[in-house]
Design a protein around this nucleic acid. Sequence first.
DNA 1: TATGATTTGTAATAGGTGAAAACAAAATAG
DNA 2: CTATTTTGTTTTCACCTATTACAAATCATA
Lengths: 399, 399
Amino acid sequence: MSEENVTTSTTQGRDPASLRRHNLRTLLGHLHLQGATSRVRLGEITGLTRSAIADLVAELTERGLATEAGPSQPQSGRGRPPLIVSPRDESAYVLALAVDVDTVRIGRVGLGGTLLRESATRHAPLPERPEEAVTVLSRMIRRETETAEVSPLAMGVAVPGLVRDGDGVVTRAPNLGWRELALAERLREGTGFAGRVVVGNEARLAALAEHRRGAGRECADLVYVSAGVGVGGGVIARDRLLTGNTGYAGEIGHMVTNPAGRACHCGGRGCWETEIGTDALLRRAGIVAPGDRHAALAELVSRAHGSEPEALETFRGMSYAVAVGLTNLINIFDPCRVILGGLLRPTLLYAGEELRGALEELRGLPELPVELCPAELGEQGPMLGAAEAAVSSFLAGME
Amino acid sequence: MSEENVTTSTTQGRDPASLRRHNLRTLLGHLHLQGATSRVRLGEITGLTRSAIADLVAELTERGLATEAGPSQPQSGRGRPPLIVSPRDESAYVLALAVDVDTVRIGRVGLGGTLLRESATRHAPLPERPEEAVTVLSRMIRRETETAEVSPLAMGVAVPGLVRDGDGVVTRAPNLGWRELALAERLREGTGFAGRVVVGNEARLAALAEHRRGAGRECADLVYVSAGVGVGGGVIARDRLLTGNTGYAGEIGHMVTNPAGRACHCGGRGCWETEIGTDALLRRAGIVAPGDRHAALAELVSRAHGSEPEALETFRGMSYAVAVGLTNLINIFDPCRVILGGLLRPTLLYAGEELRGALEELRGLPELPVELCPAELGEQGPMLGAAEAAVSSFLAGME
DNA sequence: TATGATTTGTAATAGGTGAAAACAAAATAG
DNA sequence: CTATTTTGTTTTCACCTATTACAAATCATA
């Protein structure tokens, strides 16, 4: 169908000036995603001539967003060695946060996606009152930016909860006890940061990160699913994160896969989350009321890693329930890849055969080969995704 | 999150020439979707100046794609009356086909979306052999184009089956007996038509049509679901039709909503289709082996329309199963509207209360108000969608 | 009826953007 | 050392839209 946008976004390009902005964005976006590239190669990719590239790259270097390295090291062809354009790291970076109940990750990620440093990870729970939590976060951010010479291009924050798209309001984050918290705005106030602040759901952002830097590279349509206590996910369609009307798209944990199943805390019954979440897994393992879910889980995984039959059987037992939900997602989205994170990573690794078998049994459209891949970024996913979202936001607003 | 595309599509605009093409497309796209618009208004929308608009509109009129009407009829303000730019109908149109087992709709749809004429509707089944069917279709198209003075801008075809995106190959259409049929290519050969030929799944195209011309106007994110013998659908995200990796996205009929349910012809079990399709409804009505499903269904609907308790009860009985699937779709996509077509239209009309009640019970996120709407375009949906896809394709390829 | 205000269309000029072409530079191959 | 290849630079040019000034067409008001 190849159904292109009819009302092509008005802001894209209409006058010569915005044309140039567009080309600058394209160039910098490419550098960010693909890394160092020769000028000529940039020309081939964008369709611009060498002279145009030279001019645009000059502006990028002048602004401190890119550098041109002399002929790098080896040499393949025989002509004049090219100038290599690279995104700048140290001086052009974004600040990324991943907030969770007992951990806050904060890091600087440079253009190009390199994690410059992941500094403070707290292991004390955040204050319960949202205002205090915001104060703590703001302080962490200020401490991080003080040590840097230049301020970040933008900021990204990953949150375990529902985030409204556009204004960065956290509608609800049960684990943190937040409701209707205008996080982006509060952080801007608390830190005095003038650039863009982007807030997003952690699973959606992890999906974005896997797409750009992890198991989903070179794959325009993918589904990312991560199971933990809850089940979250994100969908990339045509290289873009699906947000839905209000930014809540991707709440796949509450997809009903078994109407005869258990009651879910959301009020529903038989949500996927109740079938494949941490509790479901521990139940299968015979652990009904664990003292420390996290530890019990870690032990289960390590036992499976040691090939203990019982542990393996636990994961195998869950594969069918996982496959039911995946079948739905595959039928709905037709992705070229499904990336499994959290609990589903060990499930894929230790019960991959059963999982694939169940999928084949359930799926009605075997013509579509879908790859199942384990997530690559692990616990860093949400933070790296926040960084990616921040970079995108910066690019979109680039003058 | 507002995560914009990082590598902005290269083809968008890089040099002055493509900039102009882009502006022409924007203008014509607006005219197509919004209808007649004054020059000044066009300027406000696109951000272009009056002189630029004048120049661009002149090119559009010269090419026969738009007309400028003198001051229309009334007059509101007090300044000089504006020139109104309108998309041309008669001379700028696309050809749209909707192929089905026993009916082929063919029509001309002008720019602006007006159905100029819906000429031939056959009621004899298409030949079983694909090649013969293609021949029949080609003949119908030629007959339609012969009578016209100018040839269409593009062609669109809706098909009840899986269509691969990009090349217009029908991967499989069980009802028609087609497999791996390069329909777009065959029709181009069979008719000698030089423009673009777009082929798409009927439900996806109906979704597109509802989005642009029906119950989904002004709604950037919507889900369209249509139940018949099978259950099809389409999703619009950010004003664009979701296609997935190969164009199969939207196969929501085979979403498993009841793992303990009936076997589906697709090989799975408990697919939504087996729960809410025609057969399921007739089963509920106590009609197990109908002689004519179509007639039995029509009667059921008309009895419900006449408020016969039994018929109403039949639709009410189905509402829960419908709600289960809708809940999933809503959680996954966060649409602002869900449009119900086919069987689901009467279900909404005659059992709306039960349906909404079940949704409220099942959904875990009552914060999100989602509208349920009946489809507006009815049986014409697929054909009108094919026309819209054809127009989009033409615009995308406009020189 | 005449005049000014308001809105819209038109024409001429200007500024900015990337393309094209010619040339210079830096490497390799022989 | 020369020819070839590849890349960077410079200049010229074509194109697109903005800007500006002005003309046309209507309404409001005196």
